[in-house]
């Protein structure tokens, strides 16, 4: 029996390159780290948690002004554990913004953005902005008073940019005012456009980290 498993593993390894993966991804040397080094993987964990809970929420959520609010009431009151899934998604968003910002500050304080990790930082700033974009677009989706008026003001601020402000405002709102089209656009951005960009940038971020290794904590020599 032991032989069978050994053979099966070998068969898979020949075709998938499991050993190579293990050596390149997991069995790597690293500088001594501490708890501040866990914030990047914590951000990734929270992102994946948001993806998972978000997928569950789309099963019941309806992005139209007539039904968005009621569909969330339904999730909160009728769906089994709907309140838990939405609660995790709601608080997970806040926590993710917090963790991503602290991760950025940690990188700044240890000057990990310097040679050879400049591009990792650049991609990271992109991820920070996308995370805030996820927060902004997600805030409108419950279609309650707070969401509606905060988004009205938020898009107004975007509309105050000189020359192209009017265009940005109309592109965000899908017209001069907040409407069904705005909700549809924010929904599309929240569940397709921004997550797709985030997946791509996270992939790049991780590749760069593995390529250059985690940076060490600087001492007087650095």
């Amino acid at each position: 029996m032991q032989n069978f498993w050994k053979n099966a593993l070998q068969w898979l390894d020949e075709r998938l390159g499991l050993n190579e993966l293990y050596q390149n991804l997991l069995d790597r040397p690293e500088p001594l780290g501490n708890w501040w080094n866990t914030l990047g993987s914590a951000s990734l964990f929270l992102f994946l948690l948001q993806v998972a809970t978000g997928i569950f929420l789309t099963v019941y959520y309806n992005p139209s002004p007539d039904h968005a609010y009621d569909s969330i009431q339904y999730i909160m009151n009728e769906v089994a554990f709907g309140w838990l899934i939405r609660g995790i998604h709601h608080w997970g968003a806040s926590l993710m913004v917090l963790v991503v910002i602290i991760h950025m500050l940690r990188t700044f304080v240890t000057a990990s953005y310097k040679y050879p990790r400049e591009l990792t930082w650049l991609v990271g700033v992109g991820l920070l902005l996308l995370t805030l974009g996820m927060g902004f677009t997600g805030y409108l989706l419950p279609w309650h008073q707070m969401a509606y008026w905060a988004t009205t003001v938020g898009t107004q601020i975007a509309g105050s940019v000189p020359f192209i402000g009017e265009f940005i405002l109309r592109a965000l709102r899908g017209g001069p005012d907040l409407s069904a089209l705005t909700l549809q656009r924010f929904f599309a951005a929240h569940i397709w456009i921004l997550p797709a960009l985030m997946f791509a940038l996270i992939g790049l971020h991780l590749y760069l980290i593995i390529k250059h290794g985690e940076s060490h904590f600087p001492d007087k020599e650095d």
Partner: peptide
């Protein structure tokens, strides 16, 4: 703690004081 809810969006109620998410 749960999720703090507010009433359904009402475009006619312009007296509502908007408040963004805490990180904004």
């Amino acid at each position: 703690v749960g999720v703090h809810d507010s009433p359904k969006a009402d475009p006619s109620d312009t007296s509502y004081i908007p408040r963004p998410e805490w990180y904004f």
